[in-house]
């Protein structure tokens, strides 16, 4: 006797899969905003090309243009968002163990945000104020 077999149902993930739940949406926002981290770098490299070809005023005018200022604000906000999500993930993946207690992700977030402020001030002090 031969056994009759039936086809299995294969369901494909649609390109809108990430709208089906809040965590997926948060994930997609996290990934797409990280694009601005790269975009600012590309714009900055373009600015450097102006400076390197001898056109200092073109470089400075680029920075002073309203569009560039607006872009910088958006890039700063998204970069800070990247920093926040990155610090939180850092707390999840490499928790610090002190004695018997293990650090929580939000503790890593707070500690690293404090560190971010210190590092930022250190950069300003070393490169600008000194």
């Amino acid at each position: 006797m031969t056994e009759k077999t039936f086809p299995e149902l294969r369901r494909k993930l649609t390109s809108g899969w990430w709208t089906s739940n809040r965590h997926y949406v948060q994930y997609m926002v996290r990934e797409w905003t990280s694009l601005f981290v790269a975009l600012f770098s590309l714009v900055y490299i373009y600015g450097l090309s102006l400076l390197a070809t001898g056109s200092r005023s073109a470089f400075l005018n680029l920075l002073k243009s309203p569009a560039m200022i607006a872009f910088s604000f958006i890039a700063l906000i998204f970069t800070l968002y990247h920093a926040v999500t990155w610090f939180y993930l850092l707390g999840q993946v490499v928790p610090v163990k002190i004695g018997k207690t293990t650090s929580k992700p939000w503790q890593a977030l707070v500690a690293n945000l404090v560190l971010l402020i210190i590092v930022s001030y250190l950069v300003i002090w070393l490169l600008v104020l000194r």
């Binding site: 981290v37 600012f40 900055y44 600015g47 920075l63 002073k64 560039m68 200022i69 872009f71 910088s72 604000f73 890039a75 700063l76 970069t79 800070l80 990247h82 920093a83 990155w86 610090f87 690293n112 560190l115 971010l116 590092v119 930022s120 950069v123 300003i124 600008v128």
Partner: peptide, 18 residues
């Protein structure tokens, strides 16, 4: 990007033009 980019964007793109 998390530790150094924010201050870099602030210096070049915001603090200088404003």
């Amino acid at each position: 990007a998390a530790f150094l980019l924010p201050v870099m964007i602030y210096l070049t793109g915001i603090a200088y033009p404003l």
